[in-house]
């Protein structure tokens, strides 16, 4: 029996799989897919073997750079990227939160210099699951539920 795809296949581009259902629209916003001129299809609350419901995004003709992938990792730490060429998966990549994060998230501390002067943020990742970021400047810890992506 042929398995029906919930989100149609793409010829070339990127499939971002295993996005938490609550993070779908954040991922779209982070990657600025709302401004993308190529075909973007997505599905939410799909069945998953490894998580309780998931979201998936398929983007035609887009291949993401490391920094963009890091941004995804902060809200979708278990996301998987599949690079598609000619309807085939040619590369798989599991996003990984790096040990240091620069200029992606905001510091939650309103009195931090990074929220008051035009400078890049810089964090040390002190926990990857759940994510906790220690600000290089004010030394305060931003927890996952306080996280705001730039």
């Amino acid at each position: 029996m042929k398995k029906q795809l919930n989100v149609s296949a793409i010829k070339q581009g990127t499939v971002i799989d295993h996005i938490p259902t609550t993070a779908l629209f954040k991922v779209i916003s982070i990657l600025k897919l709302d401004e993308c001129k190529d075909m973007v299809t997505f599905g939410n609350n799909l069945d998953s073997n490894v998580m309780e419901g998931k979201a998936i995004i398929k983007v035609e003709n887009r291949f993401f750079k490391d920094k963009e992938i890091n941004k995804i990792a902060l809200v979708a730490p278990h996301a998987k990227l599949n690079t598609i060429k000619d309807y085939e998966v040619v590369e798989k990549y599991v996003v990984e939160i790096p040990d240091e994060i620069q200029d992606i998230a905001r510091c939650f501390n309103p009195k931090c210099i990074t929220n008051n002067e035009n400078i890049d943020t810089h964090f040390e990742v002190i926990s990857k699951s759940p994510v906790a970021l220690k600000c290089h400047y004010c030394e305060k810890i931003t927890h996952q539920d306080q996280m705001d992506i730039k």
Partner: peptide, 10 residues
Amino acid sequence: RHPLEGSARY
């Protein structure tokens, strides 16, 4: 001396 946190590191 500065009122904002992290200002000295910066």
